[in-house]
Design a protein around this nucleic acid. Structure first.
Lengths: 190, 190
DNA sequence: ATAATTTCTTGATATTTGTCAAGCGCACAA
DNA sequence: TTGTGCGCTTGACAAATATCAAGAAATTAT
């Protein structure tokens, strides 16, 4: 049976089975208990994670406010990209909201893949571009949509999230207060 | 004398002179008159541009609203990344607000660089990551800052912009109306 | 099961931001 | 010069969202 990671690489990047196996062999399975941190702000993000199961939250603290940037579920990569690539101290906290299974690769092995797999540069490019596009889409949403529209967008994209994750975190990720989210949701019922 | 592009590659990516010259030889200088489009939404973004001089605006139209994503000046790359990398129709319009000088490279030559320069994969990774980080920072701003705070951030980062670019575009880029920007600026004087 | 704690909802109110309409000022053209 | 148009500002008002406080609901711990 294939892991989520293998599925992802094969489907998203269109890589053949052999290479998929090769790539995924560099990753190791990591279990995180609910509440544990995959990364703490200020540390170095020296592992790239890919989520097999569970839910994680990426957030930071800034002028007394906690900002949730993203909720990751099955099929997402999890890393502080700036820290991982540029070897700076991490800005983000990444915490498990439930027990999680992650496939992780460390910096060193990540470098190794690049040396051993000629096709890796292309995959890496696609991966980074995808990360960029996701953020770009969110910027557009903030520049052109109301809180309610952003909520609908997120809800339609991933309704289950709202049963699995504390609403305060989703509110923060949408850039609104929990009270406003509560009222928007009430509105949607009418 | 070095071009902005060569400066950028050398300083930002820490590449030696020889490689810098090699890389920049793939780029060709392109002149754009004020008002001309470097890219139109729906077309394919088959050129990556690097700005030597002038100002360009990246925007799209969505439900009767024009959204300005970014104003590019000297030292910025200009491209619809999703279109350039994934070969999709472009989402963004890129238009010259003033006469512009761009160093451009087409898809084919871009591929070639990768094949001829072993170090290219690393540079590409850094480039894409930088693009990502810029957007990530903007997301954080929208999740945690008021319109006025975002204005101050942008103004402190690049005050000249407000003398060179129509305020309505800067308002759009900040995610606010021109009226609100006008009032914020009035406030700042007191 | 019960108590304790946290999260969610609701109401009242304040603040921020948007909308619409009018007027001002500057640039450019006839 | 004198319009003409466009972008910017201002005012009055409306809508969206935040804040604060209280209570209800859900979750967690004892």
């Amino acid at each position: 049976m294939m892991t989520e990671l293998e599925n992802y690489i094969q489907n998203y990047f269109g890589v053949n089975k052999e290479e998929v196996t090769k790539i995924s062999s560099y990753f190791k399975l990591l279990h995180l208990k609910k509440g544990e941190f995959f990364l703490k702000s200020g540390r170095y993000s020296d592992h790239l994670g890919f989520m097999q199961s569970g839910i994680m939250r990426e957030f930071l603290n800034t002028n007394n406010k906690e900002v949730t940037k993203w909720i990751s579920t099955k099929g997402y990569f999890s890393v502080d990209l700036a820290s991982f690539i540029f070897k700076q101290p991490a800005r983000w906290n990444i915490q498990a909201l439930t027990d999680c299974e992650l496939y992780v690769i460390n910096q060193k092995d990540y470098q190794l893949i690049g040396q051993e797999l000629s096709s890796w540069a292309v995959l890496e490019k696609l991966f980074l571009t995808k990360c960029f596009i996701i953020l770009e889409e969110r910027i557009v949403q903030h520049l052109s949509m109301s809180a309610e529209e952003r909520y609908n967008q997120l809800f339609n994209f991933n309704p289950e999230l709202f049963n699995q994750v504390s609403l305060q975190y989703l509110a923060s990720m949408l850039g609104i207060t929990p009270e406003t989210l509560s009222r928007i949701r009430k509105n949607q019922l009418l």
